[in-house]
Design a protein around this nucleic acid. Structure first.
Length: 539
RNA sequence: GUCCUCAUAGUUCAAUGGAUAGAACGAGGGUUUCCUAAACCCUAAAUCCAGGUCCGAUUCCUGGUGAGGACACCA
């Protein structure tokens, strides 16, 4: 009974599973595990789910149509309806001016950009926002350090200002580290004074502040370009601080309350969370307080349906409290604010810290990876530098995207970025290989016959294509580009396997096989684009 | 101390209650008169421990153990 119901169901839906497993009992063209024992309906659901994920066996005609849809971009139309008319604000926010960029920041930038692209292909209107800390003690420390270092070098800030973005940024990083070590030892009061002056907009301090702030911004801008990210708007702490403070003050007695020493706090404990200080006893607004202003500023810039804050998971507790406060102040924000909690990037054995200098700077990764890529390049490439750059960025981005963003990851400085195996270059290489085959073949487009038979080497590849759309949707729903990254790797492996076994050009099967190659190339290119990675035609 | 994550081959990661736990790196062995060897093929190698729920648990629950993080004037 069960068997016939399932069998009919599977046949109707053109679904079946592989037959080879020892624990399956055969019947007709289809199979199911032998030891099942629940109602017909339940088992159909289960099988459907299992079959939907792997070993799916759909009639070839359906598969061929799917593949054709990919080639002529039809699949994009369907995807565009998934999040149609949704407005998503994505905030990249763990950078501070006056500090150096490290791998952790890179992860935010790379994942944020990719998630943005997923929402775009799924039909949403996306607004990329960048939120940076350009005021506060860390800035004071850096400024203090800059002044000290310039004195030592006998150089004025205007002279130094003529140097390259990179030099200035590293100098600033060094100055910040110096400020940090000295803060603990003996110059606490001096640095605190600078911090006060920053908030009071003291003229002399502001001169140095403005110049050094620009150093950071210019430097970051270079990276945004190199990593194919651009922002619709930059939000700065210094600009929203006042508004945030006002909002907090206006809600004292309602949402906020007086804490110890004249501070203003939010008592999250009423909601099962914890208490946090929004305005300090001295009257300066904290990060939490500023967030109240940021929410409003972001709403003003873009009336979003959802705001996604791409920030490390160490901020998870912080965000639950802050989001609660935002929602209580203005119910418009209810269920719109979302913290995309990302795992941290740690160094082998220790935590990364820009205070102690235990960081892997973005420059060092770029330089090291690029020089390694250049060693692998064939010498007859005319535009070597462009190719090397695309592969370098691809390798770095992919290494950050290939695992679930929520997981913490470990970065090993000694083991540089992967260039083979499960890597960006592996995909780029497979793409270039496909292009090479396509160029060698005289077949441009091949009209597949009705009931065209694909042989045993071709079929595994054909069966893989239809999953492309599904994986994009899944990756979007889970905020996990890794889902697609994994799929692309598997597809590329399938293709390379096929390539190793079958000749394409000049064979009787050339038409079909070029078709498969074209679809593979198309998926890899579109897929990599979603990950924010470019391809090269030759490598 | 309270709370939150997490624990899978030597290493880095997959597996959203289903079939034989899947890759990559590293280790060992092999493939190029032939469309790109950044590739392909073969071998060895893993679910932290103890209970529970279920026909079925890496996945859910409880308790251990271990790692990371957050817990009032930092950002």
């Amino acid at each position: 009974m069960i068997k016939s119901v399932i069998s009919d169901y599977l046949k109707q839906n053109n679904i079946g599973t592989k037959l080879e497993h020892p624990s399956v009992e055969k019947f007709g063209d289809f199979a199911v595990r032998g030891d099942v024992n629940f109602s017909d309906l339940e088992i159909i659901e289960k099988i459907d789910k299992v079959a939907g994920f792997s070993n799916l066996w759909i009639k070839e005609n359906i598969l061929i149509d799917e593949a054709k849809n990919i080639l002529n971009d039809e699949f994009k139309k369907e995807l565009g309806d998934v999040n149609k008319d949704k407005k998503i604000l994505i905030e990249f926010s763990d950078q501070n001016t006056h500090k150096e960029l490290h791998v952790g920041h890179l992860k935010t930038m790379v994942i944020g950009e990719s998630v943005a692209r997923f929402f775009e292909i799924l039909g949403a209107k996306v607004f990329r926002a960048n939120y940076q800390g350009d005021i506060g003690p860390h800035v004071a420390k850096a400024i203090w350090g800059v002044q000290k270092l310039l004195n030592l070098q006998n150089e004025t800030i205007d002279e130094f200002n003529l140097k390259s973005n990179e030099v200035k940024a590293h100098f600033l990083g060094k100055a910040y580290a110096l400020g940090c070590t000295d803060y603990e030892d003996n110059n606490k009061s001096e640095i605190d004074e600078i911090n006060q002056k920053l908030y009071q907009k003291d003229d002399k301090t502001m001169v140095v502040y403005k110049i050094t702030r620009q150093w950071s911004l210019d430097y970051y801008n270079d990276f945004y370009k190199r990593f194919y990210t651009k922002f619709d708007k930059l939000f700065f702490e210094s600009e929203i601080a006042e508004e945030g403070k006002k909002i907090v003050e206006n809600n004292v007695g309602k949402i906020f309350e007086k804490g110890e020493g004249g501070s203003i706090i939010f008592d999250g404990e009423k909601y099962g969370l914890h208490k946090r200080v929004f305005i300090t006893g001295v009257g300066t607004v904290t990060y939490e307080g500023k967030e109240m202003g940021l929410a409003q500023a972001q709403r003003q810039a873009f009336e979003f349906d959802k705001a996604i804050h791409v920030v490390g998971n160490e901020q998870a507790g912080y965000f639950t409290v802050v989001i609660k406060a935002i929602e209580l102040i203005d119910s418009w924000f209810t269920n719109k604010e979302f913290h995309l909690s990302m795992g941290m990037v740690n160094l082998v054995g220790k935590k990364m810290s820009s205070r102690t200098g235990d960081i892997v700077t973005v420059d060092s990764i770029l330089d090291e990876t690029k020089s390694e890529v250049k060693l692998l390049l064939k010498s007859d490439d005319s535009n070597q530098d462009i190719v090397a750059e695309v592969i370098t960025i691809g390798a770095i981005k992919f290494s950050l995207l290939k695992s679930d963003p929520k997981q913490n990851s470990i970065f090993d400085i000694k083991k540089s970025i992967d260039l083979d195996g499960s890597s960006g270059p592996y995909l780029q290489y497979t793409y270039a290989r496909c292009k090479s085959v396509i160029n060698k073949s005289s077949v441009n487009s091949y009209e597949l016959r009705v009931n065209e038979k694909f042989d045993e080497n071709e079929l595994p590849l054909l069966r893989y294509f239809y999953q492309f759309s599904e994986k994009i949707v899944e990756a979007g729903e889970r905020y996990s580009p890794a889902v697609l990254a994994e799929y692309l790797l598997n597809l590329a492996r399938k293709y390379n396997e096929f390539y190793a076994k079958c000749r394409i050009v000049g064979e009787p099967e050339e038409g079909r096989r070029v078709f498969l190659t074209q679809v593979t190339a198309k998926i890899i290119k579109e897929g990599l684009t979603l990950l924010g990675i470019e391809t090269v035609e030759k490598m």
